[in-house]
Every structure is written in structure tokens, then in C-alpha cells.
Design a protein around this nucleic acid. Structure first.
Length: 770
DNA sequence: CCCCGCGACTTTTTT
DNA sequence: AGTCGCGGGG
């Protein structure tokens, strides 16, 4: 098979570069993935053993895909394709002993480490309200990303606050060590550090991985950068690919300078630019280009395409988040009557919370959808508990996991009993499970409590005796022996959904078992039993990893999760000032605004043919309806390839850019800073969110009327008016009576039938009719 | 020990 | 608006 025939000259050049450093600056949609996979295949075709090639991707899914695509070209059994995190986990498992690390370590997710932090605060007698675990978590994460250890930080801490943080950091590290656990940052940090300190380790990796490819290099952080440089130091066969315009992880320590300075770091490196876009219409590219032009700190680059012209990019104004969702849902219902082609549609948003209104709207219109959000699945209570059992089986000394399952399902081991057990364990330097075994000796533990603990130990011993070769039977045994289904029922609320989640986990386990059986023994399998490997997969799974491309569903995801994907049809919602750019970014500085702009750019350039940007005039946030202004980005994209329409209740479509912009105040200088434009609450409590009807400028009558209509409150309801309800959908008023709070309207809904509603309570919106 | 109800907090993005 | 954690009553 010819690996080069269907490539452009620039792509061929990148694929055929074998020895020495190479930087591929690949614009959005320029065929980068193709170049990377072809290049790996090409290296192998030149006689380079697959085992010497390390390909770092941004998601596990990308790694799997790469392996699949390469396997279609050449046999690639021993190729290492992984994310930085899973690569580091693997390396630490295989070389752990060399580094004085127990290779059976557990990997702590965000939620796990948050719990560890709470425990640390408890131990230090610090108030969790003042030393917020989330804040501490991000602080410690930042430090680890900059490779500052607890000891080093403690030695440099001067003031009280820093000293306290140092104490928390130290206590947190102790807890992790006690549980034989590493957090996400540790995985990188340990490898980066060990490469510097342990020559044997460094040389082993250098010799093993002589050819390195790193994708999405613009989003590497300090630790990742050091890992890269140290492994590549000897043979210098490193190929970095990326696009500075798509750097969107600065907030978690990614340093765009890594890619900008690549040429300095690897002197004599070859630079190849891929600027021709094969993905999008000229209109979409024009809009994206106009937007990104506004970033000051940027390498000049112009994407171009020879794709045929398509539709203009739409900018749509609506009254509310619900109206926005309804507009999209109805359009999709119309465009895809048999759901055919829906998997080619994606809806992007800046923050997760925005998905709710969309979900409601899609559900009401009967449009199937799927939220791409891998981590939250594993955060579900019923899943975490089940995973907890696996964790204890894998690592009995993981006290956190033991505590999670010791009374789930409830078996009569309450907080008091657990506290006694913990105290007992601490006194004798035992772990929690060992303490449970000695329940009879624990002070104050008698009768019922001791008996319950005994039963728990018996259960765990029974489970521990089971065959561990496959995960699925193990999970099923746990579910059976703990009467897990009853437990799910007792958790209340959405019993069916919990059950479905549990079934989904069993499916994932079955898939895992199957893949294991197919792949046969791998290097890692020698170090790590299946349970641990399954847990590792779970812990390091990313948002995109369970993206299902085959079923006909609309995909909903955050802009961050959209990275690296493409869809024929894209909707980007809530393009509003304060959401995109996000308020958090604008408060800070220009650098963050540029990252928001890049984030928007990433979203726009995912679209192949049809792109729609929408914003709402009002949006509910934490129970309050806020008046929204359109994003300044909507102005920056220019007019040439744009079509602006309004679905708002009154003729405010034309007013877009007049009143909203004019009064809003970001006309001047095209920048930020007009105080009156800020309509999103500040994170801190110092500023009350600005409510509707409590604005800083006097609205005129006409506008007030519009607002009332949009909010649906205090308005006169007349028979014949068409209204919309967030859950019941659309309907027509057939009767009305009373006034003020005693007002009632009878509405005939399209699907549900008739309902009597109180307008001041029900969130009715007037759509029209009379 | 379990359950229920209230209040605090949330939401920027994630490996 | 929804979730989680805590405290009081059963």
C-alpha cells in the first residue's frame, strides 16, 4: 500500500521526515491526524521497530483510533500510543521498583483527591469553609504542574497563608502515600522528576523510545515538556504537532510557549506548516479567521480552502435558553425526520450547566441526543461505590475505598463504628480493612456493630477469593452478593437510571474483558492484574473516550471536549458576554480573553458545512433570570460570511448591535471593560448578580414590555395565545381567570393535554397567536 | 443507626 | 435549580 500517494507535498514532507526534530504547525482541519498516522506507518515501513515508537495523543480514544488506523496500514503490535497520563502510569508500573515506588499504586481521580484534601483539613483542624478543598486542590495541582514539591514549597513559604497551604499540601501527600495512591499530576510529576534524578530510568526510556510523536503540543504543561525533552534528548527524533491557535488548556498549566519555542529547544529542527484546510466551507473559515485575527499574541497564519462555497454562518438571537433549545430541536426534527444524519450534528457550549436546557428541548421534540462527558459517569454514586469494591479488591490498603463501601449498601456500620475503627487502625498503624478484621479487639465495639463489621470482612474475603481474570463476572458477583439492586432502589430518585448506569458499567467491563482476550499478554499485563488495568482505564478515561459515532444521535459537549473532532453541522449556543468569553476570564486579564477566543475558534473550526451561533437575551442562572448581552466575539467575526436573524419576541433582531451593543458599551475599542455590560454574576459574594428589572440604566417602555413578554410574568394572558412551558412544551391558552397571584390559565398542550397553571409560578412564555 | 428536611454552595473548562 | 452535607427526630 502506498502511504504517500494521496497526500499533498507539504504532508508528504512531514510523513517522510524520519531523523531529527520536526515541528508540524497544523492549522485546524489541515489533515494533521492523517499525517501523524501515516508518518508512524511510514517509520515502520522504513524498518523502525514499532516498539521504539512512542505516540502521545490527547485522549485515549485518539490513541485507540491511531492504533486502529495504523493497524490497517501495517502491523503495529508493539506500538505505544497513549495519552501522557496513561503513558506515565504505564512507565511507573513497569519501572516503579527502580524508583522506590510500589507499582500497584492506585490512581486518584479529581473526586478522590478532593476527599483526601477534606481529610487533610480534618486532620489539621482547619476549617473547610476558609480553606476550600477545591481551591487547595487547584493550588496544589498548579504547584505540581510547576514541579514544586510539598517540601520545597514549605521551605519557601513565608506568610501564614502560604505556610498553611504548605501544611495542607504535606498532609495531602501523606494521605496519598498512606493509601498507595498517585493523583493525575503525580503521574506526570514522578516521571518528569525521575528522568532527571535516575540515570538508569532515563536511559531505559531513551533507548526504548527512539522515535517520539506528540500531538496537541500547544497544550503541554511544564511536566509534560520536561518528560518530552528528557526522553528525546539522546536521539532527538521528536515530532511535535499542534496549532498555537488551538491552545485551550492554559488554565490547567498548559504553556503555549512550549510550542512557540520548539525551534529554540530543538535547534536545527524542521518546521512544516499545513495551512490548507480540507474540512470547512470558505464561509466557516472566514468567520473563524476574522475572529482569531483579534488575538495579539499569535503567530500569523492564514487558513485557506478550496472547498466549494457553502451557506453563510448563522447568528441567531432568541429570547431565552429554552427558546434557543426549542429552535435547535425543531430545526433538527425538521431536517432529520427519520433521525438519519443526526450523528453528524453537534451542539457545543462553554459550560456544562448549559446542557440542561438543550436536553429538555431535544427531549420535548423527540430528538435523540448523547452528552459527551465521560468523567461524570464515573462520579455517579452507584458507579463509584461499585468501583470502590474493585478498588478494595485490587488494593486492600486503600482506606478511602474501604470507607466508601464499608456501609454501602447499608449494613449497620455507622459513622461511630467507622470512627472507632479508624482510631484503632491509627493507633496500631494498620489499614482500615485490617482493623476490621480485629473488630473484636476494638474498644467500644461490641454486639451489633462488631457483628456487622465481621459480616463485612466475610463478604470481602468471599469476593477476594473469586477468580480475577475477568471483570464482568466479578462485578456481577459483587452486585449479587451485596444485593446491589436493592441498594440502588433505596438510593431513591431515578432508580431506572441508576440501574441503567450499572448495566453500562457491566457492558464496559465486558468490552474490556473481550479486548484483553483479543490482545493477549501485553507488557503491562505482566505487572498489572486485570482489575488494576480496568481501574486505570476508568480513572484515566477522558470525555471523548466513550463518544459513540455510530448511533444516530446529536452530540452535546463543552467546547473543550470538542477539541480534535469534526461534524458536518455544528451549533454553538450561549455565545453571550460573560459565558463566551466566560466571566472568569474577563475579570482576569487579556491573556485569558485570548484563550477564550481560541476556544471559540476551536468550536467554529469543528464545523464542516453548517455552522450556527446562537445567543439568548435572557438566561436562567442558579435560579435567577439574567439579562444577557451578545458576545463581543459575534461582532469580531464581521459580516462578510454571516447571516444574522432574530427569533426574539419583538422586533429586536434589527436592534442587535444597536441597543444591545450601543448601550452595552463594548462598541468602543472593541474590547471589554464597559461596566454596564457585565450581566453575569461575579464568582465572589461581593457583587450581587444583576437582576432583571434592576439594571443600571433606565429601560424605555417598549423594552420593558418586551422583557415582560419574554419572562412571561406579570403579563396579560389572553385566550388563543400560544405559550410555551419548559417541560410541557407548546400549548394554546383556552381559558383564563383571576389576577395577580390568583391568576389561572387553562392551557391545551400539544402532547400532554390540558393543564391549569398559575402564570406567576409556571414559567410560561408567550410565543404569539391571539 | 437511618431517614428526612433544611441550608449552603454551586458552575469554567479536565487528564 | 439541583446537589451535597449536616443535624435533629424517629
Amino acid at each position: 500500500m502506498d502511504l504517500l500517494s494521496d497526500l499533498t507535498p507539504a504532508q508528504v514532507e512531514a510523513v517522510r521526515h524520519v531523523e531529527g526534530p520536526l515541528l508540524v504547525l497544523a492549522g485546524a482541519g489541515s489533515g494533521k491526524t492523517r499525517v501523524i498516522t501515516r508518518r508512524v506507518a511510514y517509520l515502520m515501513s522504513q524498518g523502525i521497530p514499532a516498539a521504539e515508537i512512542l505516540a502521545i495523543t490527547f485522549t485515549n480514544k485518539a490513541a485507540d483510533e491511531m492504533r486502529g488506523r495504523i493497524a490497517a496500514l501495517v502491523t503495529a503490535r508493539h506500538l505505544t500510543a497513549a495519552t501522557f497520563h496513561s503513558f506515565c502510569a504505564r512507565v511507573l508500573r513497569t519501572h516503579g521498583e527502580m524508583l522506590g515506588l510500589n507499582p500497584q499504586f492506585a490512581i486518584y481521580t479529581q473526586a478522590d483527591s478532593k476527599r483526601a484534601l477534606k481529610l487533610a483539613l480534618e486532620r489539621l483542624n482547619l476549617d473547610a469553609a476558609h480553606w476550600a478543598p477545591e481551591k487547595m486542590q487547584s493550588r496544589i495541582s498548579q504547584l505540581k504542574n510547576k514541579m514544586v514539591s510539598a517540601g520545597k514549597y514549605a521551605s519557601e513559604a513565608v506568610d501564614y497563608a502560604a505556610k498553611t497551604v504548605a501544611k495542607i499540601y504535606t498532609a495531602y501527600e501523606e494521605i496519598l502515600r498512606g493509601n498507595n495512591a498517585l493523583d493525575f499530576d503525580d503521574l506526570l510529576l514522578r516521571v518528569a522528576t525521575a528522568l532527571g534524578t535516575t540515570a538508569e530510568f532515563r536511559e531505559a526510556l531513551q533507548e526504548r523510545y527512539r522515535y517520539i510523536l506528540i500531538d496537541e503540543y500547544q497544550d503541554t504543561n511544564e511536566a509534560q515538556y520536561r518528560i518530552t525533552r528528557q526522553i528525546a534528548d539522546k536521539f532527538r527524533n521528536i515530532c511535535a504537532t499542534g496549532d498555537p491557535d488551538q491552545s485551550i488548556y492554559g488554565w490547567r498549566g498548559a504553556d503555549i510557549r512550549n510550542i512557540l519555542d520548539f525551534e529554540k529547544d530543538f535547534v536545527g529542527c524542521k518546521v512544516i506548516r499545513l495551512e490548507r484546510n480540507y474540512r470547512s466551507t470558505p464561509q466557516i473559515l472566514d468567520v473563524a479567521g476574522e475572529l482569531i485575527k483579534h488575538n495579539m499574541k499569535r503567530k500569523q497564519k492564514a487558513l485557506f480552502t478550496e472547498n466549494p462555497p457553502g451557506a453563510r454562518v448563522r447568528v441567531v438571537e432568541t429570547d431565552s435558553a429554552e427558546a434557543e433549545a426549542r429552535f435547535i430541536a425543531e430545526e433538527l426534527r425538521h431536517d432529520h425526520p427519520d433521525n438519519k444524519g443526526l450523528s453528524g450534528v453537534a451542539i457545543f457550549y462553554r459550560v456544562n450547566s448549559l446542557s440542561r436546557a438543550l436536553e429538555d428541548g431535544l427531549r420535548a421534540a423527540g430528538v435523540p441526543y448523547e452528552i459527551v462527558r465521560g468523567t461524570s459517569f464515573y462520579e455517579r454514586q452507584e458507579i463509584r461505590t461499585l468501583i470502590g469494591y474493585l478498588r478494595v479488591l485490587a488494593t486492600p490498603e486503600d482506606d478511602g475505598a474501604v470507607e466508601r463501601i464499608i456501609n454501602a449498601p447499608t449494613r449497620g456500620i455507622g459513622d461511630t463504628t467507622v470512627a472507632r475503627l479508624k482510631e484503632f487502625a491509627a493507633g496500631r498503624t494498620l489499614n482500615l480493612l485490617e482493623a476490621c478484621r480485629l473488630a473484636g479487639e476494638v474498644e467500644g465495639l461490641v454486639g451489633r456493630g462488631a457483628g456487622a463489621v465481621e459480616l463485612f470482612v466475610k463478604l470481602m474475603d468471599d469476593l477476594a477469593a473469586l477468580d480475577r481474570a475477568e471483570i464482568r463476572p466479578l462485578l456481577e458477583a459483587i452486585i449479587a452478593q451485596t444485593r446491589y439492586k436493592d441498594y440502588c432502589r433505596k438510593l431513591g430518585d431515578d432508580d431506572e437510571e441508576r440501574q441503567a448506569n450499572v448495566d453500562e458499567l457491566i457492558n464496559l467491563a465486558a468490552e474490556f474483558d473481550e479486548a484483553e482476550a483479543l490482545e493477549g499478554p501485553t507488557e503491562e499485563a505482566e505487572v498489572l492484574p486485570p482489575i488494576q488495568r480496568f481501574l486505570e482505564r476508568v480513572a484515566l478515561s477522558s470525555d471523548q473516550d466513550d463518544l459513540n459515532e455510530t448511533s444516530e444521535r446529536v452530540h452535546l459537549m463543552t467546547l473543550h471536549a470538542a477539541k480534535g473532532l469534526e461534524f458536518p453541522t455544528v451549533y454553538l449556543v450561549a455565545v453571550e458576554d460573560g459565558l463566551l468569553p466566560h466571566q472568569m476570564a474577563r475579570e482576569e486579564n487579556n491573556r485569558d480573553i485570548e484563550e477564550e477566543r481560541r476556544l471559540c475558534f476551536v468550536g467554529l473550526t469543528r464545523a464542516r458545512e453548517r455552522l450556527t451561533l446562537s445567543y439568548a437575551r435572557y438566561r436562567m442562572h442558579q435560579g435567577e433570570t439574567l439579562r444577557q448581552g451578545p458576545s463581543p466575539f459575534l461582532r469580531e467575526i464581521g459580516e462578510r460570511s454571516v447571516e444574522r436573524t432574530s427569533l426574539a419576541s419583538e422586533t429586536s433582531g434589527a436592534a442587535y448591535g444597536r441597543r444591545e451593543y450601543g448601550r452595552g458599551g463594548f462598541g468602543g475599542g472593541g474590547g471589554f471593560g464597559g461596566a454596564a455590560t457585565r450581566r453575569w454574576p461575579k464568582p465572589a459574594a461581593e457583587t450581587k448578580p444583576e437582576r432583571t428589572g434592576d439594571r443600571e440604566f433606565e429601560p424605555d417602555e417598549e423594552e420593558l414590555a418586551r422583557e415582560r413578554a419574554a419572562l412571561g410574568a406579570r403579563s396579560a394572558y389572553r385566550i388563543g395565545q400560544v405559550v410555551s412551558h419548559p417541560t410541557y412544551g407548546q400549548g394554546t391558552i383556552i381559558d383564563s381567570s383571576g389576577e395577580g397571584e390568583r391568576a389561572r390559565v387553562r392551557v391545551r398542550f400539544q402532547n400532554i393535554g390540558e393543564k391549569v397553571l398559575a402564570p406567576h409560578l409556571a414559567k410560561l412564555k408567550i410565543l404569539g397567536g391571539r
